[in-house]
Every structure is written in structure tokens, then in C-alpha cells.
Write a protein that binds this DNA or RNA. Structure first.
Lengths: 101, 101, 101, 101
DNA sequence: ACAGAATCGAAAGTAC
DNA sequence: GTACTTTCGATTCTGT
């Protein structure tokens, strides 16, 4: 127990400080999100496909190796579900190796 | 080992079955969400405050005891942040009991 | 004014009915989500790559044409950002057709 | 080279600029979120109830008037659903004034 | 270290 | 068409 009854104002000051810090941070984040929205709005105004742009950027965040690995598995699943499963393709339906990262 | 080259079709069938099940489930969920939206639309049409209603229902999901406990802590924090902290109130600023779950 | 003072109990009954209906629906949804989680758990247990599976299923929800369209734009953006933009590729950087959807 | 078919090499530069700006913004946001998480971690370390704290802060974002209005309606709904509706309470079950937003 | 929970960001649908 | 609300997926953190 940090403070006796009637005198843990220290905790109150801490609470206020904590809240101030978080609110400050959240304001900044809000502003940045607004900036981001502006950029996307500009992009749309320039004729870019914003949704594709987002997808592109999210793919850029993954390292390329993992991305291609994932992509090939997804395509394999697609081919199976389309009923096109050949024998070659079938050899690695099961990932069996740590699977997802 | 059931499958080697050219014969783990079992895995393929399993994949298809899995996907079917999930897609079926998601269809049902979609339908139920539509139903829910309908009910809220009705509620609004009857003059209810839908936002308050949602909040009310979400509070009902918490067990009442935990809800009141949480509520009193939240109100305590409010009073401190408003600068109204009396000494009485201050006695339990710190939760000190495992805190949140 | 829908109801006289002290006599809009009808509204109360309506409120209860509305809440019951929504809660019923939400229970069902919760159950179905649990089922879905179970299926994915099974899938993982069978050695499938759940993340790839999710991606595959979400792609299946889009119609194939739009999907390939989107995919090609994304790839175009990738190629530009990698600095590989040739003139051929550059010809359709801008979507310029009201975009999709 | 600058101008040929389509002459939209400019579009490529624009795309890169757009992407840079967004990626820069997202880095900053990521950093700020990390800061926020740190603050909450501190708060927890000091014995505060982080979940209550979050709720408190989210309530602070609403203007107090609207908050109390909302709160009273929510409580009214609670009382009705608990079956405690007296006639006094019942007088304003229906909001009837555009209500939310 | 893995399963689970919770929080956060993105996307879709809807209301105005 | 814009803005908002809700829903979904993904990531992160905690507990075992």
C-alpha cells in the first residue's frame, strides 16, 4: 500500500498524468490517420485504385519469401477447390512443416 | 501412409469438406446478421434510441456484479480526472487485486 | 405523443420483445462462430495452413473477374514500386474508369 | 522516354510519392501505438484497472451532456428489462426526438 | 512455446 | 457522395 488512507493523492496525480499522456498520444494518432486518409483521397483523385493500392502496400509489409510461399499454398487450395487437382499438385496439400509462421 | 505421390486425394476431400462447412456457417451468420439489422430498424421505427439500446444490451452481457464493480471504478476515475477527488474517494484508487481479467 | 403519461407500457413490452429477439439471434451467431472456430481448429489439426485457407476463402467470395482485375493492378503497382516500370506497363497506371465497385 | 505512349511516367512518380507518404505516416502511428501500450503497461504496474481506465477515457471523449443523456436512457432501458418499470419511468420510454448521432 | 484473449486496424454496409 | 456504424481479420500480449 503506497499511501495511507486519505493521502494517496500521489495515485491521483499519477492517474492524471497517465491519462494526459494517452490523450496526447491519441490526438497525434488521430491527426496522422486524418493525414493518411487525405493521401488516399488524393490518390483516388489522381485516378489510382485505392483498394488495390492498400493491398499492394500490405503485401509489401510481408517479406517476399513468406509472401510467395503463402501465395503458392493459396493457389494450391484454389486449384483443389476448383476440382482441378492433378496428382502433381496433390503432393503437398498438407503443409506439415510448421505451417503458418 | 495413405498418400504419396498421386494419392492423397483424401486430403483434398477433407479440404473441400472443411470449406463447405465454413461457407455454410458463414451463410447462416450472414442471414442472422440481416435479421438483427431488421430488428434494430424496427426499434428505430418505434422511436427507441438504438444506440442506447445497443449499449444497454452490451452491458447486460456482463454479469451484474462485475459490471457494477467496473462501473464504480470507472466513476472513481472520472471523479479524479474532474479534479473532484475527496479523500474518501481516494482510498481505493489502486485496485490492487489482480485488477482486470 | 404516442402514449399518455403513465400508460405506454406497450412500449415496454415492445422493448422487451425487441431485446429478446436480438439476444436470441446473437446467441445463435455466437454458436455458429464457435462452430467455425472448431472447423478451423480441425483444419489446423489436419495439417492445413489456416491462414492460407482463410485467404483462399476470402478470394473465393469475390467474383473471379474482379479478382483478376484487382490482382493485375496490384502487381502493376508492385512493379512500379520496385522500380521496374517499363513504358508498356506504364500505359495503364491510372485506372481512370471510375474504378471498381 | 519521359513522353511516349501515355506519358504517364509522372503517374509512377506520384505513386511512389503517395506510398512513401503513407508508409511514413504508418511508421509514426506504429511508434505512437507502442508508446500508448507502454503507458498502459505502466498503469497496470501501478495497480490501476486498465480496462476501467480505457472505458473511462472513452467516455470522456463524448461530451458530458450527451453522455448523461445517453446514460439515463440506457439506465431506463435496464430498469424496464429488469421488470422494474414504474409508471413514472415509463413516461419517456420512447425517445422521439431524433435521439442519437 | 502454444493456446487463448483482447485490442487494433481495415472493409463493408448503411443512413443521411 | 460522404460519413458513420458495425463486422471481420490480424496482430499482440498474457497465462499455462
Amino acid at each position: 500500500m503506497v499511501a495511507k488512507q486519505g493521502h494517496n493523492s500521489g495515485a491521483e496525480g499519477q492517474l492524471r498524468a497517465l491519462v494526459s499522456r494517452v490523450e496526447r498520444i491519441e490526438e497525434e494518432i488521430t491527426g496522422l490517420n486524418a493525414d493518411k486518409a487525405d493521401v488516399y483521397r488524393e490518390a483516388r483523385g489522381m485516378g489510382f485504385d485505392v483498394k488495390a493500392l492498400r493491398q499492394c502496400m500490405s503485401e509489401r509489409k510481408q517479406d517476399p519469401e513468406a509472401f510467395h510461399e503463402r501465395r503458392s499454398i493459396v493457389d494450391l487450395y484454389h486449384s483443389i477447390l476448383r476440382g482441378k487437382s492433378g496428382t502433381a499438385v496433390a503432393t503437398r496439400v498438407r503443409t506439415r512443416e510448421g505451417g503458418d509462421t
